[in-house]
Design a protein around this nucleic acid. Structure first.
Length: 595
DNA sequence: CGTCTTTGACCTGCGC
DNA sequence: GCGCAGGTCAAAGACG
């Protein structure tokens, strides 16, 4: 905030000293009880006085108490005491007013930011739902989640750079802005939308949402959110991309949003805008995907594009369900074949119409192990406590969906940095028809079972494996992966909790703590470093983010979980937003904290 | 009384 | 086409 903190602090210190001195004096000088009648009398006739004079009066009177007789001084003492109390109360009120004003400023800032983000959320969800109505699953399945965020650099002459070059240019542009932030102080951003299925030029492979970021260099950066099965991911990615750029350019103009509007108004305006285009309103679309009416929900759930990825988390707990921060409503229970323990079905009740569901079932072999399977992506802002797990499921599901795409799409959408171009062309291909690929995070204490498997119905696919050993996390990628050139971290001095990226087959990313006694902090550092280091590759980003987030959220130490979620959230934002700047930022953060 | 859970019925997809 | 299993619905009961 732009307030003069030093000045306010010094003023506050002086005031608090005055209050303390008054309290000390009063505690000594008060030889009797004050009746309400006396207080009223004095209060009605006491003129306001300044603080300093009031303190001096009390002090002088305190001295006079010791020399004069009590009988004559009692009324004066009472009056001055009450005057003093009045002044003190007024001073406290002034402080409270100041604090209130500061808090209002903070609130207004937060409200404005929330409104802007909410506006983008509504816009993106609405557009993607429109997109989902017009496109077949076969088309959706060809759009990988990680490529849903496609960044183009439109030069001043209107020519577009290739996607491969776009990320690089954006990264360099961002880095340049970071180095000389004042060089590009202005800029504008606009969120524009178009429905490709309805546009005259009707390119269904292009985006329904385009966030244009334009700075004064006449260079436009278009954050292009392609239709995906994970609306929130795409939205968050777009928002985070926009945020990252906004922080650099200190530009906050968003044409498509009106920060002065309340979220409800923004939602209504979006609905009106949609209605004006002879398209179903947002409310209608949400209702169509909402839970009542139930018939419509069924149609949504049968849309494979919404439900074709699952994230399963195995934890050792005695609780009936895993506390993931969300609100769930149980809607069914079933005895599954081969497991005497019933499987419970829950749906998210944070917002009506949220498509996320989870299944909870205890392991037949070890009933202390609880398996929670998440499915879908939240269609609403999440509670803070639920962000970590939601990020887990979204990222992991995104990884699965990414793998279920054609190599040509990946090659077109992912190429950002040749040094980290892992798996872009060599990932095994999962058939789009493979039902319900599932990623499993095993967070039990069994070392042999401390693994995260990425399974798919297609047996040809080799799994990623995340192992959580005592001294770190190991990630094993499929042996078909191309060798990695860890050029970025190869030149960097690893923190005391070392991070290593091995090249070759199989690829192994290892976080190894040099001092296991540091435990939580080391884990946090490793998480940040590793997450940042592999943000260049969406495959690894999604999978590792999923594993790390789950691990952190399952830590028994709540404070640790909160802290790590915060840092990991930053890393995830970086992973989802751009491929350049956030790595540097996270690396610096890790290096500074690990020393 | 509203909300949530329970539980049997029903629906859907898949394999034979 | 049939049966099975998984998933969902919705009425009834429990609970605060």
């Amino acid at each position: 905030m732009g307030l003069n903190n030093d000045e306010s602090r010094s003023t506050e210190a002086i005031s608090s000293q005055r209050l303390r001195s008054q309290r000390i004096e009063l505690s000594v000088a008060l030889p009797f009880e004050i009746s309400s009648e006396m207080a009223l009398t004095v209060d009605s006739g006491s003129p306001p006085q300044s603080h300093a004079s009031n303190t001096a009066t009390v002090a002088s009177h305190f001295v006079s108490l010791s020399t004069n007789t009590r009988e004559t001084d009692v009324p004066r003492t009472t009056q001055q005491f009450l005057e003093n109390e009045l002044k003190r109360t007024r001073t406290e009120m002034e402080h409270m007013i100041d604090e209130n004003q500061q808090m209002r400023k903070v609130l207004s800032l937060m409200t404005a930011e929330y409104n802007a983000l909410y506006q983008q959320l509504v816009t993106t969800v609405a557009l993607q739902q429109q997109q989902g109505k017009t496109e077949k699953f076969s088309q959706l399945s060809q759009v990988p989640l990680a490529t849903a965020l496609n960044v183009e650099v439109v030069q001043g002459n209107g020519q577009r750079a290739s996607p491969q070059r776009s990320f690089t240019e954006h990264s360099s542009h961002s880095a340049g802005s970071e180095r000389s932030r004042s060089a590009t102080p202005t800029g504008s951003a606009q969120v524009s939308s178009r429905s490709p299925g309805r546009s005259k030029h009707g390119d269904k492979q292009t985006s329904p949402l385009r966030v244009k970021l334009e700075d004064d260099t006449n260079q436009k950066i278009i954050v292009q959110a392609l239709p995906t099965v994970m609306p929130m991911d795409t939205d968050k990615a777009a928002v985070n991309m926009f945020r990252a750029y906004k922080e650099e350019s200190s530009s906050q103009a968003i044409d498509a949003s009106n920060p002065s509007e309340s979220p409800e108004l923004g939602f209504a305006s979006e609905a009106r805008e949609s209605a004006s285009q002879d398209e179903p309103s947002v409310a209608e679309q949400l209702e169509q995907n909402g839970w009542p009416p139930n018939k419509r929900m069924k149609s949504v759930l049968q849309d494979t594009s919404v439900r074709n990825a699952r994230v399963s988390v195995r934890t050792r707990t005695d609780a009936p369900t895993m506390n993931d921060g969300c609100q769930w409503r149980k809607y069914g229970q079933k005895l599954a074949k081969g497991n005497p323990c019933p499987r419970a079905y829950y749906r998210c009740t944070v917002a009506p119409g949220c498509p996320v569901r989870k299944q909870v079932q205890r392991c037949a072999e070890d009933r202390s192990i609880l398996t929670t399977t998440y499915e879908g992506t939240h269609s609403h802002p999440l509670p803070a406590a639920a962000v970590a797990m939601a990020s887990t499921t979204s990222a992991a599901a995104g990884m699965l969906l990414l793998g279920s795409t054609s190599s040509s799409d990946r090659a077109e959408g992912l190429g950002s940095d040749n040094s980290f171009n892992l798996g872009t062309h060599s990932m095994p291909i999962i058939s789009a028809s493979a039902p319900f690929p599932t990623i499993t995070l095993d967070l039990t204490n069994n070392p042999a079972a401390n693994q995260m498997h990425l399974d798919a119905a297609n047996g040809n696919r080799q799994p990623y494996t995340f192992s959580m050993a005592q001294n770190g996390i190991q990630m094993h990628a499929p042996s078909m992966m191309a060798p990695v050139q860890s050029s970025y971290y190869g030149a960097a001095k690893p923190p005391s909790g070392t991070f290593q990226m091995y090249s070759g087959n199989p690829l192994m990313v290892q976080f190894q703590g040099g001092n296991t006694a540091r435990g939580p902090q080391l884990l946090a550092d490793s998480v940040t470093a590793a997450t940042a280091a592999i943000t260049s590759d969406p495959n690894f980003t999604a999978a590792l983010a999923a594993a790390i987030t789950s691990i952190l959220s399952s830590q028994p130490n709540n404070q640790l979980a909160a802290t790590n979620s915060s840092s990991l959230g930053e890393a995830l934002r970086g992973a989802l937003s751009s491929h350049g700047l956030p790595i540097t930022a996270a690396k610096k953060d890790t290096a500074s904290r690990s020393t």
